[in-house]
Design a protein around this nucleic acid. Structure first.
Lengths: 257, 257
DNA sequence: GCTGCAGTTATGTATATACATATTATTCGG
DNA sequence: CCGAATAATATGTATATACATAACTGCAGC
């Protein structure tokens, strides 16, 4: 044996090599959707390894959604009727600084009150519950980058009532204070309303890219944000290479041109 | 022993229970970012199981990005500076039919020619290479749902030259013919140009949600699509609950109101 | 023909074991 | 005191083994 017990010449582990071998067969089309991939005991022979090793590879592929496994029947290539694209959504300060621009944050308004019907619906709480409503603008250098409209539930985050948000933007403030367990993003286009248009220096009804995010901690709604970006200047980018390498996915940037 | 060798009373496997126990500690905030989670041999004792079992749970959590693992040092809760949102992008026919509407597809134009500079750049090929350029409109019931502009590389898909695309939309046609190994999505807002506005029945410069997708097969660019949806009527939705359950993620719909 | 039971098969889960590897502590020689 | 060799430690990978479970096959008996 010139090789060690764990690794072959190329330095990768055996199960990850089996995994990407199979992933390649699938993404190259050699094994079409519905094709039955070799049984574990067959792969065991092909690679000269134990069943646990091929099982690990196949389990990861199943988790990644590339294959489907059935007892007694075997493992099959899943049909890809839908593509999954992974968006990675960063903090706005990080986004701006990644562009080599100076980040500045300006609080436009801050009010504490009882949620009206519309606000309660957005946040997913009952009307009348106490909330903090914030509006602010994020700048990249001299130019407005993004307008933020936010509701924070005071039930979920009592501390938010006493915070002025003059130096710290509400996003990162919440992130360090409240752990979240679920989030929902809603991405859409819209015409800029008068407030947003003024804040971003756009003509009224100019197109804006809107990202709305609702965040929960357990079952409890925490916050609702609506981020408006001038169209043309910003795009969300999601790259996706199916499974195999797992982190082959992802990266989103919001980039200025 | 009233329990079987593999499963406890609740029917879930032990490693998945360990996994979600830890995931809960993290998402609830009990274990903050940077916190060192118990060593494998400690968890082994807590759960009265072998190291392989806790290793499996921790490996999955590491793949999911919830924890970081270092030899000799231990495993640590990762700081979540960025949120990953998973968009699931379906075929347009499926989207429309999911809304209970009748799907119809109309080819507006189809041309075969040599790619000019702009087209070559979009597709990622050399100028002068042969392409098919398509424009079509997808209808949901009577109303236009989405305008599609597409370039297909004839180097990658020679068959596309002889296809009329009168009955099958180019998206599904390509999907069954050409396996793809990577895709990049670009989501943005824009003002509708005259052609798109006319096709969608909008006023010129009305805001539209634009999804651009570039697809590769191996290293070779296959197709570039630009899908324009009327703003207000459509949104991309991505739900995300971090790891633990893995498929707790995702679903995107493009919904009409 | 149909029901029910036993056998077969592939995956699912878990264990005990072994050695590899990265990294930190410790010890020892100069 | 410093740097090098050495030990200790936690994770990483892999094996052989065992039993569980889902699902299908086929047969026996009515």
């Amino acid at each position: 044996m010139t090789e060690t017990a764990n690794q072959s010449a190329d330095g990768r582990s055996l199960h990850s090599r089996i995994q990407s071998d199979i992933a390649d067969k699938i993404t190259s089309g050699a094994w079409a959707p519905g094709h039955r991939i070799p049984f574990e005991h067959e792969l065991t022979q092909q690679y000269g390894c134990s069943r646990m090793t091929v099982n690990k590879a196949l389990t990861v592929l199943a988790r990644a959604g590339l294959i489907e496994r059935h007892r007694r029947a075997g493992s099959f290539v899943k049909s890809r009727q839908s593509e999954a694209a992974v968006l990675e959504i960063h903090d706005i300060r990080v986004e701006v600084e990644a562009l080599g621009l100076e980040y500045r944050y300006v609080l436009a308004s801050r009010r504490r009150h009882a949620a009206d019907e519309a606000e309660a619906a957005r946040l997913g709480i009952a009307a009348g519950e106490p909330v903090v409503k914030l509006a602010c603008v994020h700048f990249a250098g001299e130019r407005p980058f993004c307008h933020e409209d936010r509701l924070v539930s005071l039930d979920a985050v009592p501390d938010a009532g006493g915070e002025a948000f003059e130096n710290t933007a509400p996003g990162p403030w919440l992130l360090t204070r409240v752990p979240w367990s679920a989030a929902e993003h809603r991405i859409m286009a819209d015409a800029a309303g008068p407030v947003v248009a003024a804040a971003l220096g756009l003509k009224p009804d100019a197109p804006v890219l809107v990202v709305e995010r609702r965040t929960w901690s357990g079952e409890q709604p925490v916050t609702f944000v609506r981020l408006s970006y001038p169209a043309g200047a910003h795009a969300l980018v999601a790259r996706f290479a199916p499974a195999g390498d797992s982190q082959a996915a992802a990266t989103t940037m919001i980039s200025t041109r």
